[in-house]
Amino acid sequence: MRDMTQETLTAKDYLSDIRPIWCPGCGHFFILRALAQAFAWLKLPKEQIGLISGIGCSSRIPAYINAYGFHGVHGRALALGTGLKAVRPDMHVIVAGGDGDGYSIGGNHFIHACRRNMDMTYIVMDNEVYGMTKGQPSPTTEPDWESKFAPHGTGIRTFNPLGVALASGASFIARGFAGDPNGLTKLIVEAIEHKGFSLVEIKSPCVTFRPEEKEWSKTMRKMNVVPTDDVVEAARKIHSSDGLDTGIFYQATLPVFEPHSTKGKTVLDFEKEFEV
């Protein structure tokens, strides 16, 4: 996958002139940098990258990357990314956003994107809260996390994105940590190189609304998971993990959905198909 014929680009070349304005300390900064490092390592041609996001602090990420990008609609990033991949299978489609965007309002798209197993990468910057709208609980928030918006906690069990991805048919499932930039860069590289739908769920502290998440820098285990292609073994690993393990939980070769109707067709051909 790494194209040695490409000129050497550095991470800097993949970052746009717009500087991030996330809160100082926010985990999203380190994910942005890891993404740019991964692009540089893979020497991806900038014009071949499509970075699609939804809405949220995390979803601002396309503005900061020097490639094609689309800051979409809340919860619809995967739908947009799927459309892009369908018509431009030659492009590297990377979809990014938060846990609110992807697992709450976008939860249904998440399940079906996994099931379709199209060749794209989904980066979820999971801070277990809605950061942009000032701290409401998200599907990954613990049931007893008390805040102004949920004074007694939500009382609802947390969503397990890795478990749902596995059950739905994703072929690459990993968890990373924003505070381990090196491990994270490696995960993103491997996810992009993987043929099929790759989920990289990244624990990314929201230092403003969940300052206690800074503790993750002490508790998260760095790249301790050994990958497997056995779905039962992967399920055991995912469900027995306390959420602090990182690495690839599952990677397998599964049928990839590639809409044939788009191959070699021009816009005119499509228009003809719709003629009545």
């Binding site: 991470a11 100082p24 300390g25 900064f29 930039p181 860069t185 800074k214 820098s217």
Partner: peptide, 19 residues
């Protein structure tokens, strides 16, 4: 970019989570 120079190496950005 993921290669670390020695076992106890810490990425310089890792302290910034405390900003």
């Amino acid at each position: 970019p993921w290669e670390e120079p020695y076992t106890e190496y810490i990425h310089p950005s890792s302290v910034l989570i405390h900003a």
